[in-house]
């Protein structure tokens, strides 16, 4: 299983990658913003995407919209501080499969990953 992690914060990418490792995922590609993420998505094949919302160059919402416009149904989890109901609805309408608000406990992220991670 190959996972794309998009976040402009290096520490968040490490925390998310560590959680992925804990559920058996080791094939992880990191993107430092939405533009970097869409380029890596086009150049490669992923089984799941974890993305922040507020990123430079291209937001997580724009990233999700572009991925869905490309016809992909890859599972996408948005991990963000944006927690207002209107924003959650906007993310879901754009094509997000699940949503986790920061701050979160390690178990919260683990529970989200368990829903989508398939490790042979």
């Amino acid at each position: 299983m190959k996972v794309l992690v998009a976040d402009d914060s290096g520490v968040m990418r490490k925390i998310i990658s560590r959680s992925l490792n804990a559920v058996g995922v080791t094939d992880i590609v990191e993107a430092t913003d939405g533009q970097d993420a869409i380029q890596k998505f086009i150049d490669d094949t992923f089984d799941m995407i974890l993305t922040d919302w507020n990123m430079p160059n291209k937001s997580g919402l724009e990233l999700v919209t572009e991925i869905r416009a490309l016809g992909s149904s890859v599972p996408i989890i948005m991990i963000t501080t944006e927690a207002q109901k209107s924003q959650v609805i906007a993310a879901i309408q754009a094509g997000v499969n699940d949503y986790l608000t920061k701050p979160f406990e390690a178990e919260d992220l683990r529970a989200k990953l368990d829903k989508f991670v398939v490790v042979p």
Binding site: T80, T81, E82, P103
Partner: peptide
């Protein structure tokens, strides 16, 4: 900072 500001804002 991002987490404190973002969640407080909401």
């Amino acid at each position: 900072t991002n987490m404190i500001g973002g969640s407080s804002k909401d």
